[in-house]
């Protein structure tokens, strides 16, 4: 279980860039059940990515705490290296353009040496075989192993990023707008893939997106974040019963297909 309790985060202003200081998260609490898939929706600038960075331990909250399995985040991360992973929206910027697909995947596997990366049970297992099995997990053909990122389509590259994210056998996967830059048809495939992987490997997801329809299709429950405050939390099947004015207008504004 992931418990985020009353977390606050401000960024200091800078006279150089003219940025004013700002409290981005103003006391956010959120719970994700073990093995669950929880959605986080909100407009751009509402603080979704900031919350993701705090959960990933990339930044520290100014106040509040984050517990995983009842253990404070930093302590949990030390005890479980590599057990938390992330997929970002910008897949082209998140891979090394000079690495082949195989190198990208193996970097993730070998970075976890000795920590039980997926398929690493046997020290003699052929590393290439591990990369192949990761590609199979995300429904990509094996011949792509020798390809470079620029030789792949957006959908293929995002699948490679997902394969890399699950390479170290994580328990928790943070998906920050992971499908937002993909085509409709590819979005649908990737959502199905993610749902399958979560079941297969019993992972817990925090799924961040601005598209309510996508979130509803994969998540069990949804948090609505507005200007750094959680306005509402509801189970997906109760979506029509949201009460807060923000969640309500987000919902009513959707142009359903």
């Amino acid at each position: 279980m992931i418990e985020i309790r009353n977390v606050k985060k401000s960024y200091r202003g800078s006279w150089l860039s003219g940025k004013a200081g700002k409290e981005v998260l103003r006391g956010v609490s959120l719970t994700i059940p073990e093995g669950g898939c929880t959605g986080l929706v909100g407009g751009s600038g509402s603080g979704k990515s900031t919350l993701a960075r705090l959960l990933l331990g990339l930044e520290r909250p100014d106040a509040g705490e984050i517990l995983i399995e009842g253990v404070e985040l930093r302590k949990w991360r030390k005890e479980h290296p590599g057990k938390m992973s992330v997929v970002f929206q910008d897949y082209t910027a998140s891979v090394n353009p000079r690495y082949t697909v195989e190198q990208i995947l193996l970097e993730a596997v070998t970075a976890q040496t000795g920590t039980g990366g997926r398929g690493r049970k046997d020290e003699n297992t052929d590393l290439t075989e591990q990369a192949r099995s990761l590609l199979r997990d995300v429904n990509l053909p094996e011949h792509l192993l020798g390809h470079y990122p620029h030789e792949l389509s957006g959908g293929q590259l995002q699948r490679v990023c997902i394969a890399r994210a699950v390479a170290a056998n994580p328990k928790i996967l943070v998906l920050d707008e992971a499908i937002s830059s993909l085509d409709v048809t590819v979005q649908e495939q990737v959502l199905e893939l993610l749902a399958g992987l979560r079941k297969k490997y019993s992972m817990t997801y925090l799924f961040i997106a601005h598209d309510l329809q996508a979130v509803a299709s994969i998540c069990g429950d949804i948090y609505f974040l507005h200007q750094g405050v959680i306005e509402e939390h509801c189970a997906c099947r109760d979506l029509s019963r949201v009460r807060s004015s923000y969640a309500r207008s987000l919902l009513d504004s959707v142009i359903i297909f």
Binding site: Q213, A216, S217, L239
Partner: peptide, 8 residues
């Protein structure tokens, strides 16, 4: 993809 949302 929108099915779940539409039903809810």
């Amino acid at each position: 993809m929108s099915g779940q949302f539409r039903r809810a």
